[in-house]
Simulated assay, not measured.
Amino acid sequence: METKMKALLSYAPYDNRYEDVPVPTIGNGEILLKVKGCGICAGDIKAYHGGIRIWGTSEEDRYIEAPCIGGHEFYGEIVQKAADVEGFEIGDTIVSEQIIPCGICRFCREGKYWMCTRSAVFGFKQYANGGFAEYVRLDKNCLNHKIPKSFTSEQSALIEPIACGMHAIERANIQHSDVVVIAGLGAIGLSMVNITSLALPKLVIGIDVKENRLAMGKEFVVEEIMNLTDGLGCDVYVEASGSPRSVRQGMDSLKNLGRYVQMGVFAEEVTADWNVMGDGKELTIIGSHLSALTFPSVIKGIESGLIKTEGLISHKFALADWKEAFQTAEKDPNAVKIMLLP
């Protein structure tokens, strides 16, 4: 096998570099994956723009370990595996969950690995280099899943983002009598509308207003939700856009005793009127982090046809054309999910 590969490394905000780097070497329990495709997450775009969630305000609170290879929405083919790896063979097409859990912290020991205190998400740590590359090393603690042979490349690349959306919907604990609003109709948001509908709630409302139009659309959106709910508001508001203004929109749209689910990632810190949450509407505020235990269900849902994937991958670019891909993800009104092909 060649000793060098092409990869997209993040050095600093606005400083991504397409470079030659060594192909990873594997040790006990590890797998070398030849990347077949990797989606661009909104978090990848925000990291490029120096979002505080990734770069922090100083070295002390910085999450990213630069330079590192980005990308956590990847899938690929096993080309090497250690002798002690069981359940997988060379040639298998697999997807790996987006976090490498430590396996020893309290959350890992309790089976809640997605909340691992090490929080090693692919693409943000040097020991967890991601899928914007020709090859990825899968650590012995990675959670890997076989992809059915019937899956298209688009379906395979969508497993990770859809799994994140499914976890958010699980956290919402949707009832049949609920009116549910999904704010932010990217690939994940559209999938959440799909998954929410399978729970047969009273009504599902999907809303999406681009950031540059959100100020104009906010009042209309809240008014329309009120009209659709006899002036009471929605039972559940799932924030999947990562827009700070969407938080206020959600608070205004929810009925008394409503449930607010935060799934989108913000580039900066967000403020809200806590009186609305407490002394006002007595809202339940719910966070949603990564994908928890949903990968097998997402794969089963896609395979059965219950989870739709058609049209969610709107554009494909060669990894070398990453600049155009990032610009398309940011600026093209027809962009849904962008996939990079090493």
Rank of each mutant, 00 (worst) to 15 (best):
S314I: 10
G43M: 06
T117M: 12
G70R: 00
R62M: 13
W55M: 07
M166I: 05
T117F: 12
K300Q: 04
V136Y: 07
Y63Q: 02
A187D: 02
P244F: 02
V265L: 10
D252T: 02
E154G: 00
Y113Q: 15
G27L: 09
E2P: 01
R17F: 09
T3P: 00
L214Q: 08
R118P: 00
G87S: 08
K300H: 04
P24M: 15
S96T: 06
R106H: 14
L185E: 14
C234K: 07
L158R: 00
S288W: 08
R245P: 05
E239M: 05
G165L: 01
S314F: 10
T25L: 15
I147Y: 00
C164P: 01
I302P: 11
E239V: 13
V222H: 01
Q175L: 12
L312T: 00
V180S: 03
H49R: 15
I31R: 03
T328H: 07
R109G: 04
I78M: 09
A120H: 03
N173R: 12
R259H: 09
E211N: 12
S156R: 00
V23Y: 02
M1D: 04
I99R: 13
L340C: 05
T57L: 13
Q155V: 00
A267G: 15
D252E: 13
I54K: 01
N256Q: 14
F132H: 13
L340Y: 02
C164T: 03
V181Y: 03
T294N: 12
V276Y: 10
Y75C: 02
L283G: 05
R259P: 09
L228N: 11
T93P: 02
P148E: 00
G233E: 05
A133I: 15
I174E: 07
Q327F: 05
G123R: 08
E330G: 06
G258Y: 09
A66V: 11
G250D: 07
G91S: 11
M263S: 07
N275T: 06
K34S: 06
S156P: 03
R62F: 11
L306C: 14
